[in-house]
Structure formats: structure tokens, C-alpha cells
Amino acid sequence: MKSGVLRDLAVGAVLVALLLVLPILFPKPALRDFLIYVMAYGLLAMSLNLLVGLTGLVSFGHAAFFASGAYMFGLLMQSGTVGIPVAMLATVGGTAVLALVIGAICVRLKEIYFSFITLAFQMFIHSIILTWVSLTGGDQGLRGGIPRPPFLGIDLNDAMTLYVFCVVVFILCIAIMRQVWRSPFGFTLRMIRDNPTRANFLGADVVRVKLGIFVLAGSMASVGGVLLALFVSGAYPEFGFWTTSGEAIFMIMLGGSQLFIGPVIGAVLLRLLDHFVTIYTDHHGLVLGAVILVIVLGLRQGVADYIVDWLERRRETRAAAASVASEKGAA
């Protein structure tokens, strides 16, 4: 356990250093913008994977919490009554309450029924965003931008400072989810995913555990919404549309659901594909869909999961070959 924590700290330090050095080596603003998008949507995908990969709950409506994070934060900042740290904490807390209310209904259902009721709640929230024009701005999004007043000597109006802030928040959220992934709670979720009847027989409160991870996943998704709202200085209805949840599922499919960092890799791949496909063809949806189908049907798992399995097979093959060679030498 201690070695695992130390390894996680080392990997986290390397990741922070890499994310901070990249904009220095390649100072064009486009790279910073791309990485902030990846971090925001990466949190959406990784939080969804707490449900999909860890618990076996496929949510079609996870972007509702992504949008709630963006809108709650934006409205709090536009009120001018709180600073950025307080607004972020209030947003995460408010989204957690929203996830608790929705999850209390959803987690009692199984498989496809769970998936579709989460989609129904997302479309309900999206409808509220569109129709409550006086509060949300309707289909135009929040009007007037999102203020970024300095706090603790940090001015997020500076592009590089905003980028560093996003990196720190992103890594903190990744660290929280990593601890959940490796914790006894995480192994309880895996047991529920594999055999909920046995988990219940062994004393796990299946509904309560599912509700707990649903609330945590919604809270983490809201942080991704906050980062994106800060970056674009606004919140828009498409943040909570069903296609945004679909993108998160695509990221998990591309990167892999069994490797912890897989959804972030999927977010990078999807954003790169989206960028280059848009540049070279007008048939964006057709080409992107075909590429995703080739990867998913060809590899039958995410890219990261495939690479890990391939390396493991190579290691086992080499170990078997070395064992046979040593036996022959001994003979």
C-alpha cells in the first residue's frame, strides 16, 4: 500500500511537471487552450468512468452535472458576492446535493433502466436551462461573461496563471479519484459490478454504495464544468446536452475503462481527432464515427487497455521463454 501511494505521488509529480513545462517549450496559446479543454473534459470522462468502469453503471446523463457546475459557478461569480474559491466549493456542494437527489432515484434501477432515467434527468435539466431565460440566458448561455477577481494574490485574468490553476485543480481531482479507485470502497464497487447479489450477501449496502459513488462522480464532473466555464468565460446549454454525455462515453471507449488514466487518454485522442477531422473534411460526424468504430471493433477495448494487455502478454511470453530456457540449461 505504501509503495502504491509513493508510486502515485511520483506519477503525479511527473504529470504536473509535464503539464507545466509543455507551454514553456511550445508557447503558442493554442496548446494551452487544447490542454485546458482536455483537462475539463478529462474530468468529465474520468468521473463517468467511476460509474462505468468501476461500478458497472452506464449513465447517459452525466453531462447534467458538468453543466450544473458551469452554470452554478457562473451565476455565483456574476452575483459578485463571493470569490472564486468559495464559488467553487459552493458549486461542488450544490452539485453533490443535486446528484444525491437524482441518484436516490436512479441507483435503485438496473442496467438499461438506469441508463435511460439518467438521460431523462439530463434532458429535464437541459430544458430548464433553455426555458429559464431570465436566469440562464436560454440558448444564448450566460450573458456578460464570468468575472475573475483576484484571490490570494492569484489573478486568473492572466492566461498562464489560469492554465496553472487548471493544472493544479485537475491534478487534485485526479488524486481524489485515484484514492477512491485503490481504496476498499473502490474494491467494494468492483464487487458490486461483478456480482451485486454476492456483495449484498457479504454485507455491502448496494444501494447506499452506488449512491455514494454517484454523488462523488457528479461532484467531480462539476469541477470539469467549472474549469471550462472559467476558460470560456461563460456557460452554454450544450454543456448539458445528451451529446456531451456521448462524448464522455466515447472518451472512455477510446482510452479504456479498466486503466485508471484511460479516459484522459481517450479525451486527448477524441480532441485530436475532432481537431484534424474538422480541418481536413466537412463530413465531421461520418469520419469521426468511422474512426471510433474501427478502434472499438478492431481492438475490442480502449487503446490504453489494449497497450497494457499487450505489454502484459509480452512480459508473460518472455517469462515463459526464460523459464523453458533455464529448464533446458539445467537438464
Rank of each mutant, 00 (worst) to 15 (best):
S3V: 06
V5C: 02
R7I: 12
L9Y: 11
V11Q: 04
V14S: 13
V16C: 14
V16E: 07
L20N: 05
L20D: 03
L25I: 13
L25V: 15
L25E: 10
L25W: 08
P27K: 05
P27M: 05
K28D: 14
V38M: 14
M39V: 06
M46R: 10
S47G: 06
L48C: 02
N49E: 11
G53R: 00
G53I: 05
L54E: 03
L57C: 04
V58N: 04
G61R: 03
A64C: 06
A67F: 07
Y71A: 04
F73Q: 04
M77E: 09
Q78A: 12
Q78L: 12
T81P: 00
T81S: 14
I84K: 03
A87W: 01
G94A: 11
G94C: 11
G94W: 04
A96C: 10
A96L: 13
V97W: 05
V101L: 15
G103M: 11
K110I: 12
Y113N: 10
S115G: 15
T118H: 06
T118G: 05
L119D: 03
A120K: 01
A120H: 03
F121S: 05
F121V: 13
Q122V: 03
Q122F: 00
M123N: 11
M123L: 15
F124V: 14
I125D: 02
I125H: 04
I128Y: 02
I128T: 01
I128K: 00
L130E: 02
S134T: 11
G137S: 10
L142G: 03
L142M: 04
R143F: 13
R143P: 07
G144T: 03
G144V: 09
G145P: 02
G145E: 02
P149E: 00
D155V: 05
F165D: 05
C166W: 01
V167S: 10
V168C: 08
V169Q: 03
I171N: 08
C173D: 02
C173S: 05
I174N: 03
M177C: 09
S183V: 03
F187Q: 13
T197R: 13
A199Y: 00
F201W: 11
G203A: 12
G203M: 10
R208E: 09
V209C: 13
S222K: 06
G225H: 12
V226R: 01
F231A: 08
V232H: 11
V232Q: 13
S233Y: 09
P237I: 04
F241C: 02
T243G: 06
T243L: 14
T244C: 08
I252P: 01
M253Q: 02
Q258H: 14
P263S: 11
A267C: 07
L269A: 07
L272H: 00
H275S: 07
T278A: 15
I279P: 09
Y280M: 11
D282H: 10
H283R: 15
V287I: 15
V291Y: 01
V291N: 00
L297Y: 09
G298H: 07
L299H: 09
L299Q: 01
G302Y: 08
Y306L: 05
Y306N: 01
L311S: 01
E312Y: 11
R318N: 08
A330K: 15
A331P: 06
